[in-house]
Structure formats: structure tokens, C-alpha cells
């Protein structure tokens, strides 16, 4: 099972941990945990701004010390490059190409993995036949498919889609199976006793019950796909964010390399934020299920 552990942030985990029973009994350990409201220097946004200011300050000093604009461009040069790339639209063009590939591959993966997961979880025979082949393929990382994929699909847009769909498939499948298996059997039997049809049982009991786990799987699938696309585009595609960073590296235009890397991080962060919000909206009851569910 792929656990939530992989998707939670360090801070979230620490907070879940510090809110445990043990801690509550022991009382507030951190003096800061009972905080005065309204003091802006203790507000979350202020801490974030301060942390970033310090980070950018250190970066600036390191850039001064290294004194090589190719190896370590200063934060201002990167900002300039970011604005210039934004003006010409190049930044968004490459981002849009990568994002489109991402969406296509996630749709393909979801359409295959989720129904297959339901089948494997509900039918023991199907599971006995299909599970071995899944377990045989799973250790082979998507990256390892790149050379063969390059040969089959050639350099272009199909290779990243194939690699991402492959990478996203396994967390989605495993979490779907896990979610369906966690369905309360009594609910299913009760519905059956009361004459609820099989399709209605599936739609009204199995799907909602499995949804939290599927959502977790989807977030992990997104994260691994977003990591894989960079490798796939860097090696075998003439467009996209992964291509752009390597292209500008070869031209030794470091500020643009850094600008594109920032874009990769920003999209990854925003998408995860969006998925997390969606998860909270779609499956609010899953909040209390804890870690590793």
C-alpha cells in the first residue's frame, strides 16, 4: 500500500504527531503552541515571507561570493529572466505543453487503473491472475522505459505521455484496490439484504467508500508523473519544461534555467494544493482517518 506518508508535508506530519493523545495528556510541550492571536510577527504568512527573505538573501550572498553568473546567477537576474520569459510567452508555452501532456496521461491512467482496481478488489479470481503481472512490472521504474519508449514512439510528445501514464498507473491501482477492500462488508450485505441492486451498491456504497483512498492515490500519481515528465522531456522531447531547462543549460543561459526550474516547482506546488483542496471538498469525512490510511 502506498501510504499518505509520501504525500504529507513534514509540518503536517509533525502537527498530526503533536496532536496525538500522548501529547494532549502531557499538555502543550511547545511554548509557542499557545500563541497570542493577532501578533503579525507570529502569523503564518509573516514566517513564510521572513523565511524566503533570508533564503533569497543567502542566495544573493552566495552568488556574490561565487561570482560566476553562469554557475550561480543572482536572484535578481533570475527574476529578470522570469519576467522576460513571461513577456515573450515562452514560459507559459512550455508550461502549457507539459501540463497538457500531464492531464492526458493522468486521464488515461485513471480510466485504466481505477476500474481495474475495482475489478481486482472485488473479484478474487481476477486478482489472482492480474496481480502477479502488476507486481512484476511495478519495480521497473518509468524512467527505465525511456530508451525503449524512445525507440517505439520516437522523440516527441508521445513518449512523455506514455512514461507518465505508466508511472501514475501503479499508485492509482494500488490505492483503489486498498480503498475498495476497506469497504465495510456489513454495509454491502445490509444493502444486498434490502434488495439494492448490484450497480446501485457499487455506485452508492463502494465508490464513496473507496474515494478517499483513490484521491490519495491520485495525488501520489500526480507527484510521480510530474517528476517523471521532467526526465522524459529532458531526454526525449523537443518541447516542454524538461526540454527547456536542458536547452538553456546548453546555451549557458543560467538565469533562464533557474526561471524554468522555478516554474516547475510552482506548477507542482499549485497542483498539489489544488488536489489537496479537492480532496478536502470531495472526501471531508476522510480527515479523521489518520496517516497511512
Amino acid at each position: 500500500m502506498v501510504s499518505l506518508m509520501e504525500t504529507r508535508t513534514a509540518k503536517e506530519l509533525a502537527e498530526v504527531a503533536s496532536e496525538s493523545d500522548v501529547d494532549r495528556k502531557a499538555g502543550a510541550r511547545y511554548p509557542g503552541s499557545v500563541r497570542a492571536q493577532g501578533r503579525f510577527w507570529q502569523a503564518r504568512w509573516f514566517i513564510v515571507v521572513r523565511a524566503f527573505s533570508v533564503f533569497i538573501g543567502i542566495w544573493y550572498l552566495v552568488a556574490l561570493w561565487v561570482a560566476s553568473p553562469i554557475q550561480m546567477p543572482s536572484p535578481f537576474k533570475v527574476l529578470e529572466a522570469l519576467i522576460a520569459l513571461g513577456r515573450t510567452g515562452e514560459l507559459f508555452d512550455h508550461a502549457l505543453i507539459s501540463a497538457t501532456r500531464l492531464v492526458i496521461s493522468l486521464v488515461i491512467s485513471t480510466l485504466i487503473a481505477v476500474p481495474l482496481g475495482f475489478l481486482m478488489a472485488m473479484n478474487r479470481e481476477a486478482n489472482a491472475f492480474i496481480d502477479p503481472i502488476v507486481e512484476l512490472l511495478r519495480p521497473i521504474s518509468g524512467i527505465a522505459w525511456i530508451p525503449l519508449g524512445l525507440f517505439i514512439f520516437g522523440v516527441g510528445g508521445t513518449l512523455p505521455i506514455f512514461i507518465m501514464a505508466y508511472v501514475a498507473f501503479f499508485p492509482l491501482l494500488l490505492n483503489t484496490i486498498d480503498g475498495v477492500k476497506s469497504i465495510d462488508r456489513k454495509l454491502m450485505s445490509a444493502a444486498e439484504t434490502m434488495g439494492v441492486s448490484r450497480s446501485a451498491r457499487l455506485l452508492h456504497i463502494a465508490v464513496p467508500a473507496a474515494l478517499p483512498s483513490v484521491m490519495v492515490g491520485f495525488r501520489i500519481a500526480f507527484a510521480s508523473a510530474w517528476a517523471a515528465i521532467i526526465a522524459a522531456e529532458l531526454i526525449g522531447s523537443p518541447s516542454g519544461l524538461g526540454f527547456a531547462i536542458e536547452w538553456y543549460r546548453q546555451l549557458l543561459m543560467s538565469p533562464k534555467v533557474f526561471a524554468f526550474i522555478a516554474m516547475i516547482g510552482a506548477i507542482g506546488y499549485l497542483c498539489d494544493l489544488g488536489l489537496r483542496t479537492l480532496q478536502h471538498k470531495l472526501t471531508p469525512w476522510a480527515e479523521g482517518m489518520g496517516i497511512g490510511q
Partner: peptide, 15 residues
């Protein structure tokens, strides 16, 4: 840390 986490390892390769 959280702003670096969504940056794929491969994105660091050019640097």
C-alpha cells in the same frame, strides 16, 4: 523545504 519538494530531481540536473 516545501517549495523545493515539488521540483523533480531531474530538474536539478542542468544545474
Amino acid at each position: 523545504i516545501e517549495s523545493f519538494r515539488p521540483i523533480a530531481p531531474m530538474a536539478i540536473l542542468p544545474i
